[in-house]
Amino acid sequence: MSLVNFTTREITCKIVYYGPGRSGKTTNLQYIYGRVPDDRRGRMVSLATQTDRTLFFDFLPIELGSISGFATRFQLYTVPGQVYYNATRKLVLQGADGVVFVADSQVRQLDENVESLQNLQANLLEQGIDVRTIPVVLQYNKQDLPSDLILAPEELDDQLNFRMVPALGASAVSGKGVFETLRAISERVLRRLSEEQPA
């Protein structure tokens, strides 16, 4: 992971939005895309099927400008959520500095969430990354749906968040919780700066 380049004074953070199909990963990125000034964002690359399902991945580069003397750049990726695109997911995960796990809060999607989380863990492990060491944030999306259809964040915590990572409720469609999630993951990623700087 080359997060910080001291020679060129650059910081590049790769953040991957992970989660089961239709949980709202792309929606997160789209919302962010809509809020970033034109001169700060690159073209959002989205390879989707005709029914708007992510086929390959989404990619959104954001220039944060110079922060503390560093040219700071975020690269946001999503993975295709559908089960059979695992090879793509592995590819996208490579070199990730942090992972946002977007869970679908709907009761009937719980199993998919669990399965996807296990898949994340397995794919990371395959790359020699311990899920306990990489910054991960959970987003419980679709909290705006009727309460009888969804699980409350506390219930989702019980099911998914056994590592006690930061978890935020969200409604990506309306933008609620989107930037909060991005901020949470960014802070955790940046906090690792001092641990990873070259000796």
């Binding site: 910081i11 400008g65 922060i67 960014s186």
Partner: peptide
């Protein structure tokens, strides 16, 4: 706001 918080964290 996001930039601010990232800036603070980085600084």
């Amino acid at each position: 706001d996001f930039l601010d918080s990232v800036g603070t964290a980085l600084a």
